[in-house]
Each structure stands twice: as C-alpha cells, then as structure tokens.
C-alpha cells in the first residue's frame, strides 16, 4: 500500500513537471528540431543576441517594476486603511468585493479595460501603449497586494500602534516606526507576487498593448504560434527559473516570523 502510494505520488509529480523538464532539456539541444542531437548552449546565446526579444524583455521589466511599485504602495495603504477601519459599510463592502477582481476571468478584465480605454480616448488625445499596460497591471496587482498585506496585518497586535501613540508618536510615525517594520515581510511578499503576475501576464496585456509595448509573453506567444523554436524553449526556461525563484522567495517571506 505504502509503495503504491509513493508510486502514485511520483506519477502525479511527473505529470505536473514533465512538460517543464522536456522544455528545459530541449532548450539545450543543438538541433532546432525535437530530436536530441547533443548538448549546446547556442539557443541561450541566441536569446541574448535577439534584438526583438531584448526589446520585449525590457518592456516587460519596465512594466513589471512600475506596476509593482505603484500597486504595492497603493495596495498596502488600502490594506492598512481596511485594517484600521474595522467596521463601517464602505470598508465591509470593499473587503467582501475585493476578491471579485481576483476571480474575474482575465479575458473579461482585458476586454473591459479595452472598452474603458476606448471610451476615455474619446476625451483624451492618447493611444494604447506602455502607459495603458502599466495602468492595467497596477489595477490587477492591487487586489493581490491587499489580500497578502491584509493577511499579514491581521497577525499584528492593534495595541502596538496605540502604545506608539501613547508614547508620543503621531499617527504617521506610529505607522512608519511600528507597523510598517512588522508589515515589511508581507509587503515584500506582495510585491514579489505582483511582479511575477505582471511579468507573465499575456491575455490582458495583449488586449491593451500598443505597437510600442510588446512584452516578452506576447513575443514568445507569437514565436510559438509560428512553430516552436528552441529559442522559445530557452527563453521560456529562463523565465520559469527566474519566476520560480521569486515565488519561493515570496512564500518564504510570507511565512517568515
């Protein structure tokens, strides 16, 4: 029985990770076809030499950093406000509907954003581009940040801030010196989560991106549609490793202390 169980577990594990393993193995294949010919780092070298990929990677990084920074600040303050204001119609409404934006299908969110932008563009002289992508990413990252930060805040003792006020700190000083230092692991975890979600988003991004704002997932998708190339394998493996490390780091931070 025990043996069967471990076999079963191994099979599930294989099922979950075999595709990634195949991707990683073939990214080192010297041939461009899915027949193993020999080990070669040539596709990785090609990734770093491809100007199209480089530009998309740069776009992705700019978007992810900007959206993460803005989303983390806004989301953390929002969570702090919700934590401080325990009762009331509005806070309760926000708390209960916050998850709505987490479960909204991406395609719906993307289409609605596109419709929204097109409506706004009638009054403003702007077009789809980096700014619309960043705005969309800020929007969907806020809910994730609020959820993670609020979970962390709920573990804090509310009398700590009162003690700080009692000892002469203003509300701002109490937040900065007492609450924020303890909230930091949660904020960092939230930021890493927002970053990983931003950098691999395809559906929403492709809908609200302009000609100058192609991101890495969009370029990879286009390349893969033209027929899988080892270049795609290599760049995808790189992303998987980087994001994997970040997610592990985020989980560690979230669980720390």
């Amino acid at each position: 029985m025990k043996r069967a169980l471990s076999l079963y577990a191994a099979a599930i594990y294989l099922f979950l990770h075999l595709p990634l393993a195949v991707l990683a193995v073939f990214s080192f294949n010297s041939s461009r076809f899915t027949v193993w010919e020999g080990f070669s780092p040539r596709w990785y070298q090609a990734v770093f030499r491809d100007p199209h990929l480089a530009e998309a990677a740069l776009n992705s990084l700019i978007i992810a950093f900007t959206a993460t920074a803005a989303g983390t600040v806004i989301g953390t303050l929002c969570a702090y406000g919700l934590w401080k204001q325990k009762t009331g119609l509005l806070p309760n409404f926000i708390k209960s509907t916050l998850y709505l934006s987490l479960v909204t299908p991406e395609i719906v969110m993307g289409v609605s954003l596109l419709a929204f932008y097109q409506w706004v563009f009638r009054f403003l002289d702007v077009q789809l581009g980096m700014h619309t992508v960043v705005l969309a990413h800020v929007m969907f990252s806020i809910a994730y940040v609020v959820v993670v930060a609020l979970a962390r805040l709920r573990t804090l003792d509310p009398s700590l801030e009162e003690a700080a006020l009692d000892l002469g700190a203003t509300e701002w000083v109490a937040f900065r010196k007492v609450t924020l230092p303890q909230l930091m692991p949660g904020v960092a975890a939230a930021a890493l989560l927002a970053f990983t979600i931003s950098i691999d988003d395809y559906v929403i991004t492709s809908l609200v991106a302009g000609v100058d704002s192609e991101t890495l997932p969009m370029v990879i998708y286009a390349m893969a549609r033209r027929g899988g190339s080892p270049l795609v394998n290599a760049v995808s493996s790189l992303i998987a490793v980087i994001l994997g490390v970040m997610i592990v780091a985020s989980e560690r931070l979230r669980r720390s202390s």
Partner: peptide
C-alpha cells in the same frame, strides 16, 4: 487632544512591547 499630546501613559494588558 490626541494620545501623544497627553501627559499620561498606559501599561497595556498584554504590554504591547514593540517586538522589533
């Protein structure tokens, strides 16, 4: 007057020491 402007001080039930 806010708590920080009152010359009284509180010892909390759970002490509320700053853990960091």
């Amino acid at each position: 007057l806010p708590p920080y402007a009152r010359n009284v001080s509180t010892v909390f039930q759970n002490y509320a020491l700053f853990p960091h």
